[in-house]
Every structure is written in structure tokens, then in C-alpha cells.
Design a protein around this nucleic acid. Structure first.
Lengths: 331, 331
DNA sequence: CTGAAAGCGCTTACAG
DNA sequence: CTGAAAGCGCTTACAG
């Protein structure tokens, strides 16, 4: 059984394909009420499902946006992805996700794939990437928005950002207020611009008080497994610490697990603070104190911004969000 | 700047579009080595990115598969989604995700959308859905595979299943071996076939020993928030229990959180067991004892099965996985 | 060795 | 009120 096409309906009703197309797309045209009705009925009867590939070829629009992210399994990204999908859907767009694992070559490959699929725009949830990628996008005139990806000349691009430095400063201040002095900081992968920003916030705060020490810095990888490993090596290193500031919640969760298991009481023996406020962080015991990003909101705004530029070609815009200290039980 | 097309290359090199197309697609044709080279060079120079929408219109293939799932934010689904994407990618397919929140109308809407986009096949990670959906797929000749969606006549469909009943029986047995008698069971939403299967396993085990009681059954919703709520009401209900078997890990995590917070020791005061073995369940303290599904493996096989039917139209096949008791710290 | 032509299923000026 | 025709950018028989 062949799929039904516009032509089938046109023949069934006895009008041209053009008329059918315009009627089904609710274009403002003069068609008698009776043929209009016949067309709709016939479409229904024949179970017509329009071929949007054909449509896209002629309109150059696909109503699809591409999302480039490191790993959909990571709760931060699945939360933000969900937000993006929700608003995309509201505006009748749908979404293709591409996991890059923060690999540059994968990113470039996916960008080309998405261009070849004629996506109407892209959102980058990845903090790495060469100029090269951006150039491909520019050359092909595809609108895009960056999320927390810091570039040289930020005003040239649509972007949604969180004030990472300030967030970390808040956290360090809070730890200090609670009498902590030896605050370790666990960074994300240092090739990510967001890792740098967060570390900068820490350095700034600590240096200001003359208590900054290189030995308190540890490099993690933003995963829970990574948080476990780095915490084990902190313990092994014999560096004395009374608090650990993890660059994100996923690592903090791993860290808590290790510490609890080794018999530490949190926060009595050691304080913990994270960054992100992913959903699960309030579902563990003790609940994780963290610097909250408005994750869902950021995703929403990123998607709105993208759709706006797709549809109205507005000027470039940057949106900044303020992270917020979420006081729970680990400090 | 207009995007470059086959025609541009053809003109630059001085051959026909057909030749360019065949050369770039590495078709077996007789072309002199020199024109072949010229074509590749020109394509590179002009930054040619093929228009796969046009390609799809003429080939009727999109190299895209659609995934229907309840919610990408749910760790179980993001894990399995990632698995699917990994193998899809290996075979040069890519993937569109659609979140249905287990709503029938959303599912139907997405199915039509995906058909209109000419996806080559679909994977259903959702346990609800009417016959209707399946009929649309059949009528449009789109291959699909079901994951843990139990239908009347299972042999008619490609499917990947986990032996849910047996898994739960194993868990109950293990609890019994550990001297537990008053084992509460928290189901998922009862409209999901997988919830029913798991409850059946529990009933079977308990009835066999004559210790089944209706009052020990509670209905949850498979989310962590739901696990928190249901656990609070179990505590309030004053039904005495010495173990809680949660229908999935997400609820078990919520439950553990509530119990720990109320001062219960796990497993001394109460035993907990989950189902799924999502990644995070080994990252909490105490580590969650659970019935493990081979999540990644199931996703992989589902995707392989789909691609196989897309490319070879093999006969229908069902793959069954055995869940496995993962002994950790909560029993 | 290579090209002309038809076709995939739509949309969109244009014409009457 | 409605239709004929061109075009979107590819692929694929077919012809020579």
C-alpha cells in the first residue's frame, strides 16, 4: 500500500494539488466551503500524512533544531535538554540531540550532519569547540545559540550564560562564614571554559583573603565517578581540608558517597558544596548544599532565543543568569 | 552566500550532476581518475555539504530513527537512550527523541510527526499506548521495535524484553532469605504493563508462601518524588513492614532518603530493594541493592534489531533479557 | 567513460 | 474561485 500524497487527494476530490496544499495548510485563499470540506474529508479518509521532507525541500525550513551536548546521560544535560524540548515543542519545532563527549571532531562531524539535514538552528551546550565549528555555522547561515560557552567576542553571538564566577564566590563566602579555612576546590576538565570560570571564582575569593594555596586545587571531570576518584585521592593526599567545593553536583554526589562510606559525618567532619542544583541533589541524604543554576529556565530561554532569531532574525543577544546559593544540609 | 550544490561542482569541473553525485557517493562507476580527483577537490574547495533532505526525498531513506520515550530526564531512559544513540551512530543513523510523559495523545502525535519526517524506523520505550498507534505504524510500513511493552500477540512484533516477573521473584526470595516477612511492594503507575508484570512477580512469590496481604501494596509513579511521597504514606499508614521493594530504583532512592532522614538505619531497621540498577544507585550511601536490568545492553540490542529490520526486513524477533540480583548494602 | 531526463512530494508565484 | 508550471537538490535508470 502506497502512502497517500497530495496528488491522491487532488484526484479524489477533482481539484489541483495546489488547491489541496493551500487548503490543508490553511492558507488564505478563496475556495468554496464545499470543496474545502471535501478536501479535509478525503485527507482524513485516506489517512494522509504530509511528507515533510518534500515540504522542507521546497520551503528550506525543517522545523527542527539541533542540540549539541556532551552526554545526555549526565543529569544536568538531560534536565536542560528536556527544557529545550518542551519549549521547542510549544513552537512546533522538534529536536535532534547529538552527544559529543566533549570531543572536537565529533562536534564538527555533527554540525555538518545537522546542516545537511537543514536544521533551522542549533544550540550548543558544550563548553569546548574550536573557532572552526563556529565558522562552519556562519558560512552556512545557520542561527545558533551558545550556552555557557565563553568566547573571545561574546557580543557577536547569541548566548545564555550563568555568572559562574560569582556563584563560586558566594559559595566560598558561605563556607568561610561557617568557619571553614581549608577549602579544597575540585575543578571540571580544564579545557572547558566553564571549569576555568568556576576556578577563577574560587581563586579570587581565596586570594582576596590570602588563604589561596595551589595544593587545595584538584582536577576532576564533572562526572560522579570522577568525583569518587578525586575524593579518594584528596583523602590519600593527606592535605588537610575542612571543606570541599566541587565544581558540579555530579562530582559532589560521588564525593559525598566516598566520605560517608569512610565514616565521615557531613557536615560535622567536613563540609561539602556543589554547583548546578541538579534534581537529584535534593534527593540524597544529607541534602546537598549547592550553587543553583536555573537549569530549566536557562534551557527555556536558550530555546526561545534561538527560535526568535530563526523567525525574526533579531540582533544578537546575551542573557545572563545569576546562580543562587541553595542552603541545605552539607555545610 | 548561497550554499553550494551538486550543480555548482558539476559546473566547476565541467561534468554532469549525475557524475558528481555518483563519484561523491563512491558508486562503482567508470570515471577517469583525474575527473574523480577534480570533483573531490572542488567539493572541498566549495565547502560542499550535501543536502540530505533532497537526498531523502529521492531515496525514501533518512538514516534517522525515532525514539518514543516517557521522559529523557529519567535516568533509566537517558541511559538507554544513550545506548541507542551510540549504536545508531555506529551504523550512520541518527536519532530523534520524543518525550510523551506516558500520554497517549502525545504518543500518537509524535508517531505522525516522525512518519511525516520519513524516519526509517522507531523504538518504543514506553509501556503504554493503544493498538491505534501500532496500526498507524503498520499502515505506513514503518519498522519498529518495542522495549518492555507487553502486547497480546507478542510474536507479531519486534521486541526487547526483560523478565520482570522473575526479577521481582528473585528479589522477594532474597528478602525472605534474609528473614524479612512484612515486605511492602511499591508499584509503578498501574497503566504501564511493566508495572503489572513486576507486581505479578511479587504476588506470585508472596502468595506461594501464604504471606501475601493487600495492605502491603502501594502505588507509586516511578519517579524519585513519587518514591518520597509513597514512603511517607507508608510510614504514616502504620502498616508494619520490615522491607520495602520498590518497583524501580528512582522510587527506591526517594524512599531511602525519607527513611534515612527519619532516622532509620538501612538495612538494620528496614531493608530496601529496587529495580533497574540505574547508574546512580551505586553512587548513594548505602549503595542500593537492586534487581539489575542490563540497561545499556537492552538499548543496544533494540537498536541493532531495528536497524536489521530496516536494512534486511528480517522476520520478527523477540529478545529476552534476564534481570540479575545485585547485592549491595540495603538488605 | 559521461550526460540528459525523469522523478521524489511538496510550495509558491503567476495567470486567468 | 481554481489550475498549470516551475522549482527545491538530489538519485537513478537509461542511452550512447
Amino acid at each position: 500500500m502506497r502512502k497517500t500524497t497530495l496528488k491522491d487527494i487532488a484526484e479524489a476530490v477533482g481539484v489541483s494539488k495546489a488547491t489541496v496544499s493551500m487548503v490543508l495548510n490553511n492558507k488564505e485563499i478563496n475556495v468554496s466551503e464545499s470543496t474545502r470540506e471535501k478536501i479535509f474529508n478525503s485527507a482524513k479518509e485516506l489517512n494522509y500524512i504530509p511528507n515533510s521532507v518534500a515540504r522542507s525541500l521546497s520551503t528550506k525550513k525543517t522545523e527542527t533544531i539541533g542540540i549539541i551536548l556532551p552526554d545526555i546521560e549526565n543529569p544536568f544535560f538531560s534536565e536542560i535538554a528536556r527544557a529545550i524540548e518542551d519549549v521547542a515543542n510549544k513552537f512546533n519545532y522538534n529536536v535532534i540531540f547529538c552527544n559529543t563527549d566533549n570531543k572536537n571532531d565529533k562536534e564538527e562531524q555533527y554540525i555538518k550532519l545537522l546542516i545537511s539535514k537543514l536544521v533551522d538552528g542549533m544550540i550548543f551546550l558544550t563548553g569546548v569547540g574550536k573557532e572552526e565549528s563556529i565558522n562552519i555555522l556562519k558560512n552556512n547561515n545557520v542561527p545558533f545559540v551558545l550556552v555557557d560557552r565563553y568566547m573571545e567576542n561574546v557580543e557577536e553571538f547569541n548566548g545564555v550564560y550563568c555568572l559562574n564566577e560569582e556563584g563560586v564566590e558566594q559559595g566560598v563566602d558561605y563556607l568561610l562564614q561557617n568557619g571553614k579555612k581549608r577549602i579544597a576546590f575540585v575543578t571540571g576538565p580544564m579545557e572547558l571554559s566553564v571549569s576555568k570560570k568556576r576556578l577563577d571564582g574560587y581563586k579570587k575569593s581565596m586570594t582576596k583573603r590570602n588563604i589561596y594555596k595551589d595544593e587545595l586545587i584538584f582536577e576532576g571531570d564533572f562526572t560522579t565517578e570522577g568525583g569518587i576518584k578525586v575524593t579518594q585521592s584528596i583523602l590519600k593526599s593527606k592535605v588537610s581540608v575542612d571543606a570541599i567545593f566541587y565544581g558540579n553536583d555530579a562530582m559532589a554526589l560521588g564525593g559525598m558517597k566516598v566520605l560517608l562510606r569512610k565514616g565521615y559525618n557531613i557536615p560535622e567532619d567536613i563540609s561539602i558544596i556543589g554547583f548546578d542544583n541538579i534534581r537529584i541533589s535534593s534527593f540524597v541524604q544529607p541534602e546537598l548544599t549547592t550553587i543553583g543554576q536555573p537549569i530549566y529556565h536557562m534551557g527555556k530561554e536558550a530555546c526561545k532565543l534561538l527560535i526568535n532569531t530563526i523567525e525574526h532574525k533579531d540582533e544578537k543577544k546575551q542573557i545572563y543568569f545569576k546562580p543562587e546559593l541553595i542552603i541545605r544540609d552539607t555545610v
